[in-house]
Design a protein around this nucleic acid. Structure first.
Length: 424
RNA sequence: GGAGGGAUGGCUGAGUGGUCGAAAGCGCGCGACUCGAAAUCGUGUUCAGGGCAACCUGACGAGGGUUCGACUCCCUCUCCCUCCGCCA
């Protein structure tokens, strides 16, 4: 959410942002409504002021005097008029609030304008492995080593709910633990284990609602949504807080299962682990001072990259263009890891700076040492990393001629010292 | 699920119908004292909307009601705490 004053003062910038992000929101209507709000508010204030004066005078008057009766009656009349206007004012405020939730964040000036084709590769790391045999894709490797049972997952919950089994389940758990340990020990993040269900308010705070309502699982009976990513619960941890400047920046990392309906995305990428309804992810979230957020975003990007470096998996980093980034973000990097079996790059992380966009929705502030006043913090988050696609790139990169899979050095301790996942 | 207690400023916590936006304390800002610091003393310090400003208006969990007037009385809801029941 952006400040309505800011929207008015930066009319052209906002119009541009809405267009570049391919959003559909009537800014002019919003401004018109706010002008109406101000006028109405002035009218109400004037009437209330009159009423207050009357009330105060009544206290001083003799109960039997004509003035007493007259003032009470006048005050009653005013009260009805005020109530009337207040209802109108309230409706307008509600409408403004609702509309405001659809105004996207403004892309940072370093972000390229355009659609996905305008994304920029900002970094490439690692050498693609040379195979002296034809590398298999993850589906074959999973099948050969019986790591995930897709059919039985479907039996339990429906298609695209994979069921990890045996060493596949072990590898998944190893990966999660490795990533959490890495971020807490080497990168100084505080671990959080949040609820997997989120209220409407929580999801509105981070910006998933209202826009992405159809992409989440909703439990009607309790009015709760299944967690689509750890970003909502972890960021809302500080909703309505005023944070001491001294303890900023705050770093959190959290493992959560993630649930997504992936409505409308069937057709492509539906085989195997690439796009599923339930998956695991380790998330990184930061709360920072406004001046530090872009530097902290670069650092967070590096923290996520470190996981792929430790696993020795080649990757590239993309700077997303205005049309490809999310609604709430002002700048987003994607990390894409290389899967040699299918010879493609898979998105394993998305790192976004939201500036004060989410903080404003969630009312998260800090007290500044400079002016002793409260200001909004900046929030940043990114996956560090999402497991299914990381799982894919691990098994495809570490596969051997006989179809077995070597275990990456850093994961061995988490696999009980095991060296290799053998074919069955 | 049942019974009871609570929600007030950055924090703790008074306030039970009329200058209460709110005592007191803590914290924080500024000043004095000091070579400097601590301690002490003085002083300031809620947020939001409107206005160039003086100032006006609103907000004591949220929404509604009673009243000329509500932090104070009534109703509904949310959240927290305690006890009982049930249960992985």
């Amino acid at each position: 959410m952006l400040d309505i004053k800011f929207i008015k003062d930066n009319y052209n910038i906002i119009k541009e942002a809405v267009k570049n992000k391919k959003e559909n929101i009537d800014i002019d209507k919003l401004i018109e409504l706010d002008d109406k709000r101000i006028q109405l508010s002035k009218d109400v204030d004037t009437m209330r002021s009159e009423k207050n004066i009357l009330s105060r005078s009544i206290k001083e008057l003799n109960k039997d005097s004509d003035a007493f009766i007259r003032n009470i009656n006048e005050s009653k009349g005013l009260g009805e008029n005020i109530k009337d206007l207040e209802t109108k004012l309230r409706d307008i405020k509600d409408e403004i609030r609702k509309l405001s939730l659809w105004v996207p964040n403004i892309p940072h000036r370093s972000v390229p304008v355009g659609s996905a084709s305008s994304n920029i590769i900002v970094k490439e790391w690692g050498d693609k492995r040379e195979f002296d045999f034809v590398p298999k894709n993850h589906m074959e490797l999973i099948k050969n080593n019986h790591l995930v049972d897709f059919e039985r997952g479907s039996k339990i919950a429906g298609s695209h709910f994979p069921c990890y089994i045996g060493l596949g389940a072990r590898l998944e758990r190893a990966l999660i633990n490795f990533m959490l340990d890495y971020h807490t020990i080497k990168h100084n993040y505080t671990e959080m284990f949040p609820p997997f269900l989120n209220s409407k308010e929580t999801l509105t705070g981070t910006g998933q609602l209202p826009k992405l309502e159809d992409d989440m699982y909703y439990i009607e009976k309790d009015g709760l949504f299944l967690n689509p990513t750890a970003e909502p619960p972890v960021t809302n941890f500080h909703r309505n807080d005023i944070i001491d400047e001294e303890i900023l920046p705050i770093y959190y990392t959290a493992y959560t299962a993630c649930f997504r309906r992936e409505a409308g995305s069937y057709g492509k990428e539906t085989k195997g682990l690439k796009r599923v309804h339930q998956f695991n992810k380790v998330e990184l979230v930061k709360f920072t001072l406004p001046d530090d957020s872009y530097e902290e975003q670069e650092k967070l990007l590096g923290d996520a990259e470190d996981i792929l470096k430790a696993l020795n998996i080649p990757y590239k980093v993309m700077l997303l263009s205005t049309g490809d980034m999310t609604f709430a973000s002002s700048k987003t990097y994607d990390i894409e890891a290389y899967a040699p079996g299918s010879k493609e790059y898979l998105e394993v992380s998305s790192i976004s700076n939201f500036e004060d966009f989410q903080a404003r929705r969630m009312n998260i502030k800090f007290r500044s040492n400079q002016d002793n006043k409260v200001h909004y913090v900046h929030t940043i988050n990114g996956s560090g990393l999402a497991t299914p696609r990381t799982f894919i790139t691990i098994i495809e990169n570490y596969q051997q001629r006989d179809g077995s899979i070597k275990i990456p050095e850093v994961l061995k301790p988490y696999m009980g010292g095991m060296e290799i996942i053998e074919c069955i």
